[in-house]
Design a protein around this nucleic acid. Structure first.
Lengths: 194, 194
DNA sequence: AGAATTTTCGACCGGTTTGTTCGACAAAAT
DNA sequence: ATTTTGTCGAACAAACCGGTCGAAAATTCT
């Protein structure tokens, strides 16, 4: 008896690579199968449909993102460093995921309820993390904020603003520079002036 | 009367972007047309077929590559620098073009005669450039080679070897490192020891 | 061993997509 | 006014694609 879960994991990883390259529509079941050296029908033994695989992939990637983000903020001590790392890792990740975006908002967008669910959940999680970073910053007298809740939401809004160009397929050239600029503005509006 | 050639150029550039992203098969005429804000049928007024557009794109890209390569070797004086620049630019370009590769060798590979033609022509041109670089190096007593002709061919073979992973879709991680290593080997086998 | 179950896969189906054509139509040129 | 140039919607045949089914392998169980 072959470990079914192990195989399902393999499929998710392999399919994820293809989805991220070509998007949902342009990825065919045949490709997914071929990449695994399987017959197309065999894949259906592990997943019920193409959308099922896609859902699993998004879930999987979301988990990876969560891990990357938490390790990113753990890897430094200073609140400034934490915030900087968080923003950078998040941005890099979304850049990588931009193909999913285009895939989802191609058509059939009503079919992908689960995306909204994941998004909602992650918005909440993100808010909590941002608030934590802010809170620590305030404690260490590095940040000055009236209300961590609202400030966290403001920062989150800014970060979401960075996603917009990914939607509209417009290639932002100097995303790193823009990020640094945003961080500068953010910090100098937040950091206590001595 | 609209400038037909100008329009054809626009089509080639726009279609080129899409081809390089999705490959030949996964790129649709509708996409090409939409990207130009045209009706699908209008595109056929300028080009006879999808393959025709593809051919024009490849030709166009090949020309760009040629220019990049010549300016790359002109931008430095030393034969070592020329060689280094040449190899780097060539490698970066082919990395970018790897999608075309996968597109072409998907299926129907018998349909794309013109690719072989271009390839042959460029092999000859490349050989000439390499020989020139070597020749200058020998003149300036920086290189030591018995026979520029054969040495140039040897170097070309090495460079082609670097292309192979692009064929097989295997992502080579540290292509820059490998390149540097190859250049090291190449130079230390060539440079006159003092 | 053979029976039972799990896993693979080729062949197929129906709906959709897609490259290409065609004729109608508008704009511009003659 | 008539011809030429350019655009486009509609239509079509062919290929494609997600998904099904049943029958072979392969594996496990008895």
């Amino acid at each position: 008896m072959i470990d079914k879960d192990e195989y399902r994991r393999k499929i998710v990883i392999s399919a994820g690579r293809i989805f991220s390259r070509y998007g949902f529509r342009k990825t065919t079941m045949d490709e997914i199968a071929k990449a695994l050296k399987m017959g197309k029908s065999s894949v259906y033994y592990y997943y019920e449909s193409k959308e099922d695989i896609f859902e699993a992939v998004v879930l999987y990637e979301a988990n990876i993102l969560r891990n990357e983000l938490t390790t990113a903020i753990k890897s430094v001590d200073s609140p400034l460093g934490k915030m900087k790392n968080y923003v950078f890792v998040r941005m890099r990740a979304f850049e990588k995921l931009s193909n999913y975006y285009n895939a989802i908002f191609d058509k059939n967008l009503d079919h992908f309820h689960f995306i909204e669910k994941i998004r909602e959940k992650y918005d909440r999680e993100e808010l909590a993390i941002l608030r934590l970073i802010l809170y620590h910053g305030v404690r260490q007298k590095v940040f000055h904020v009236e209300n961590t809740e609202y400030t966290a939401m403001a920062i989150q809004t800014t970060l979401k603003g960075l996603e917009v160009p990914l939607f509209w397929k417009k290639k932002e050239v100097d995303i790193t520079n823009r990020l640094n600029a945003i961080l500068d503005v953010l910090f100098y509006g937040i950091v206590i002036k001595n």
